[in-house]
Simulated scan of single mutants.
Amino acid sequence: MSDTVEETACGGEFEEEFDAFYARTYPWLAARAVMVSGNRQNAEDAVQEAYIEAMRRWPEVRAYASPEAWVTTTMRRKLSKDGRRWWFRWKPVEMAETTVPAAPTATVEETAEALAALRALGTLPPRQRQVVVMHSLEGMSYRAISAELGISVGSVGSNLNKARARLSLMLDVSPELGRPTERLLTRTPEDPLTAALYGAAEWLSDGFRGDARNGFRSDVRNGFRSDAARNGGPDGMRERR
């Protein structure tokens, strides 16, 4: 890639295009990151690094069939890599309204249901949390999850079953369809547990949408510039690929 193209990725047409992509995808990506990690700071760090990488390679990433899928995978890999440092010290986490961005337009009942789902997720071991979010919220197959996490298909199924069993018990949902929790959603999943998780994700997304308007994008840009400076500018960054 020429220096001209590399520099254009940070300005002009490509910059505007990246800004639109960021505004559209950030809230949902940040919500999923929180639900996987159980920690807002870890989630935001992983999301920021994923977008910095996407900005650095935007002329390439924008040409993919799904740039959002590429950023999502980058975010998950970052969380998995960092997670190995704390998985062995894992303990249940308490997800409270004060630790996540609350949806400004949500009703009291919607907020209570979303926080209940987040708290239930926080009781799951990290691997179970990963698998249930990847399968239920992102629609990934057992085989795709197996390939990304480096575990067997059987292990994916086992972790998913354990996660669903615990979440169903804690959230008092049955396998029957048509539970009232579906009213929180803009689309209707096939089972009430997925409905509850989608409701929590959409509640988080609404909160993060406000953050996106309040300057997080500038943090991505500042991180991009720092990354470029540490690696000797565009030439140094190209050498890392």
Rank of each mutant, 00 (worst) to 15 (best):
N159E: 07
G150S: 07
E176S: 11
Q130I: 04
V156T: 02
S146F: 14
R143V: 09
S168I: 01
S146N: 09
A163E: 12
L169Y: 10
S152K: 12
R166L: 13
Y142L: 00
M140C: 07
S141H: 05
V173S: 02
P126T: 03
Q128V: 01
E148M: 11
M170D: 14
A112W: 08
N159T: 00
E113M: 08
Q128P: 10
R129G: 03
P125D: 15
S141P: 12
K162W: 08
S155D: 11
A165P: 14
H135D: 08
L124Q: 07
S174N: 10
E148C: 02
A163I: 01
L137G: 05
V131Q: 06
L171W: 01
N159Y: 09
L171R: 12
A165E: 15
L149I: 02
V153R: 14
S158K: 15
L115W: 05
S174L: 11
T111G: 06
L160S: 12
A163M: 04
Q128Y: 05
S152N: 10
R129C: 00
A163T: 05
G178R: 09
A116P: 00
L118S: 05
T123V: 02
M170P: 00
P175M: 02
A147H: 12
K162Y: 09
S174M: 07
L177D: 09
L121H: 07
A120V: 00
L169R: 14
R119G: 03
L118D: 06
E113S: 07
P175N: 01
P175K: 03
